[in-house]
Design a protein around this nucleic acid. Sequence first.
DNA 1: CTAATCCAGGTTTTT
DNA 2: CCTGGATTAG
Length: 784
Amino acid sequence: MVTRPTAPPPPPPPLSPEAFNAAYPPAPGSAPKLDADALLTGLNDRQREAVTLPPGPALVLAGPGSGKTRVLTHRVAWLVGVERVPTWQVMAVTFTNKAAREMRARLDTLLGGHAMDRLSIGTFHATCARLLRVEASGADILDFDGRFIIFDSDDQIRTVKRVVRELDLDDKQYRPRAILGAISAAKNEMIRPREYNPPTYWHEVAGRVYERYQALLRLSNALDFDDLLLETATLLRDVPAVRDKYRARWQHVLVDEFQDTNSVQYQMVHGLASAEIADAPHNLFVVGDEDQSIYRWRGADYRNIQRFRRDFPAARTVLLEQNYRSTQTILDAAQAVIAGNANRTPKELWTDSKGGAGITLFEAYDEGEEAAYVVRRIEQMNTRGREYGDFAVMYRTNAQSRAIEDALVRRRIPYQLVGATRFYDRREVRDALAFLRLAHNPLDEMSFLRVLNVPTRGIGPKALSYVQAVSDEFNVPLWSALQLLVDDEVERDLPGLGPVDNRSRNALTTFHTIIDGLLFARDTLEPSALLGRALDTSGYANWLRDGSEEGEERWENLLELRGVAEDFGALPPREALSAMLESVALVADVDGIAEGEDGAQQGERVTLLTLHSAKGLEYKVVFITGLEEDTLPHSRSANDPEALEEERRLLYVGITRAEEKLHLVHAFRRSLFGTTEVRQPSRFLTELPPEVLTPSAARTTRSRSKESSPRTEETQWRKAPTRAGAAAGRTQFHAGDKVRHASFGEGIVVTSAERDGDEEVTVAFVKGGIKKLLQSFAKLEPRG
DNA sequence: CTAATCCAGGTTTTT
DNA sequence: CCTGGATTAG
């Protein structure tokens, strides 16, 4: 593929205006020259067109499985290897670390491992963080300095809570989550506290919180996720020197998943590419798919694709419709579903792989049976030669994973859970990181307060109030206040508090000693050792490992964290520490961390994940579970047509993950927060054309679409439960009977379910409506 | 100050 | 169901 000439390549024609090359002479870090034909082999016509587009704005509309990442990476390779653009002039942004890593890896292969270090490839957030660290040091345009820390969602919510309490607000009426949402929304619109124009009284209050929240952030020299974007976009908009510098530097900007950009991200990209500098072409290459826009709730707007067309009328558009992933059957199903959305530009996906297995639709009795079904199918296919790694089980909400996990554990099938209680959200991990953050910067109040009394060392509200009082009195951070206290450099009688009692004093000294020790060690110990020291001297390790199973589990998480820390061992300690903390703050997914306890590799495990985290992935066999009203579409989306369209896109994303076989599963009833409810099948199911389904599944949807007719279907069980009915004393069944699962209208409801390999049967009579009926369900013991 | 216990509330998706 | 907050007993 990649050929390296033996003779030095002839000087390439400069892609960018000479003026730029003169002003910014190419730095070391140009890529090897690539052979254009070799680079393009294996690409289809459309892909080739996209990869070789002339400079200028470009929009690639890429359907699922159409080789989007391939196009992006080849485009970069084309630019640096064929067009001879210096690598440092290229910036590619993605949304996830995973995508960035993958791009990097693929480019590494394409470019033969050279010249990678000068390419800017990263997530929006990471890219912004890097830029801000540079720009905030020195210039005092910004109200924070380059050593800022990054607040994650937990820090954010704690801060908002603190402000809500401070302002004496009712946290029921002003729920911290909601307020944080409002703040985030404002930031996404680039609205600062002072410019905030509240539409309602509630928002006015939220605005007050916003102001104080922001002040607290800056007090800790902290930025939240939204700030990273906002401050960068503002800088590029308002400071010509900075803007021009980066425009000149990044002459080629490539954006992945453009449909998921929010307004700030759009402006940032737009700002970088605008042509206010004479002769600068807008070399902005964006790739996206409106149909896969699933982050509306955090400000993403697929209409940015339309906006792009409007703002860059000269943009060339390339449509990628050939799919290399799924069977035609699966594509047909996907298109039928997405066709239900009104606001979209139609695309016609096609593939060379005609036909394919029908899509199975299964109605389970409840989530337990749903899980049993999935697991049974996996086992069946596994014995027929499928690897566990070929399977993925997807769901709308993380809570749904529990039942599936249970079933997998019982059958001893190795699995991998993506996301869920994220590794870095675990309490012990956050505690441990708080120690490291304090070692990095003891003024970090969030971390200070977090571990001040963890493990408990006798510092309660009383002791804290001394520190707080000193902090207020002398207007210094908590850490400095603590220092003053333990060094006995403040008046013994604090205003309104009286003398500091000895117990508090001792406890505070203990804490001070711990952190001081870390500060002392941070320049010599590498992060993993520093972490070990922190856990030892703080007593955290002992406290955690109290002999309980839970304690050991948590301890293992800390060992994993230690493993993460070891990756930074090569750098000088001080640098390694900040690199590690930065990386950890911007990591969202757990991949690479959750290697199996049972020794199974990733490829040998069933993957469990939400539909959201499934984007960009593919599996041979996909199960989409919980296809019910109020789950998919989710109840929160019920009243909002826009939100409903997003739910449909979510299902579309899920369906198009499947390469060969798709199972759609829904349950007749499902328990949620303790109570059980009857579920209606998802409206999206009725949008599936019967011919994409397996015959029996097609029959089911058809009978279901006739509204008032009874909903019946034969169960999947071969053996009827033995005289289970008799045990109920209501009706009788015999071995060999065909058990029916009749939900409505027949006077009797019978369902079977599997539990621990045994079948469980439920029988009831219809009396007083379905709700009553379900309450009166009798649970029966199976008999041998 | 800590630990145990009770209670109410909130439960979508994630950089 | 699970968490986090509040309350209470020690």
